[in-house]
Structure formats: structure tokens, C-alpha cells
């Protein structure tokens, strides 16, 4: 197990506040934020440029929603780890996101601790 390999984190959320919040609050040492995007389309561009290992993904976004974006990212890089961070609290949505390739689900609103726990769980096998 390679516990020190640094990982690149990309944040996708249409809310600037949430983007900044995740950037500020995430305390996993191996993760370093490489950029953030405000919708699915921007996320794909940024993904191509930065090749992140981990992504936090909002679902309700203009331009391209999160589920579609998850599908694109997983197609580009199957081993990417995606944590869906969304207010959509119904199970069908969670199933759909995970089926498309997401690896975790964090429901908004969240505390810093919940965020870090969710990220840690996501990375525990890496």
C-alpha cells in the first residue's frame, strides 16, 4: 500500500461558496486541489488539463448536470474516484450516480468532518 502517493483533487459545484468551502475544509494530506469547475462542461475541460485522481461532484448544475459528467469522467479515466456532493437526497439518484461510476455520496448540507470522513473513506483502498 502506497500511503504517500499524492493525489490531485478537482472540485465541481455550481456554487462558488461550496467550491471554496471544500477547498478550505478538506484536510486529507495527500490531496491537493488542482482546480474547480462550475458545471459539467467546465469540469470536463479542466479534467483534460489537470488529470485529477479525485473529484467532488455536484449534481444539479447548469450546462451539464453531474450525473452526465460522472459518466464522461469515468469513460476518460476509469480509476478516477468521484464523491458526489449533492442536495438530492433520494435513493434513486444515489443509485444512478453510483451506477454511472461514482464511488461515494455525500448529502448537502455537510459539516467539515462529514466531508473529510467521506473523502477518507473514498481513499481508503488507494
Amino acid at each position: 500500500m502506497n500511503a504517500v502517493r499524492p493525489l490531485k483533487l478537482m472540485i465541481v459545484d455550481d456554487s462558488n461558496i461550496i467550491r471554496r468551502r471544500i477547498e478550505r475544509s478538506q484536510q486529507i494530506e495527500r490531496l491537493s486541489v488542482v482546480g474547480s469547475a462550475a458545471n459539467g462542461r467546465e469540469a470536463i475541460d479542466l479534467f483534460d488539463r489537470t488529470d485529477p485522481d479525485v473529484v467532488t461532484m455536484d449534481l444539479t448544475m447548469p450546462e451539464m448536470d453531474g450525473i452526465e459528467c460522472v459518466e464522461h469522467l469515468v469513460a476518460k479515466k476509469p480509476q478516477v474516484l468521484i464523491l458526489v456532493v449533492s442536495a438530492l437526497a433520494d435513493k434513486a439518484t444515489a443509485v444512478e450516480a453510483i451506477r454511472k461510476g461514482a464511488n461515494g455520496f455525500l448529502c448537502k448540507p455537510f459539516t467539515d468532518r462529514q466531508l473529510n470522513d467521506a473523502l477518507a473513506e473514498l481513499l481508503q483502498d488507494v
Partner: peptide, 25 residues
């Protein structure tokens, strides 16, 4: 469709147990 999708997710070992339990539709 929802049921079969969920079962599909269950078989995917990369999906964690806790997560799976919490999303049973």
C-alpha cells in the same frame, strides 16, 4: 429498471457496503 440498476451496483465490488445499504430504492 431501478431495481436492476441497484442490483448491478450491488455486484460492483468497488461500491462500499455502507453506501449500498443507504441507497436501497
Amino acid at each position: 429498471q431501478t431495481a436492476m440498476r441497484f442490483v448491478e451496483v450491488l455486484w460492483s465490488e468497488r461500491t462500499k457496503e455502507n453506501l449500498v445499504k443507504s441507497i436501497n430504492p
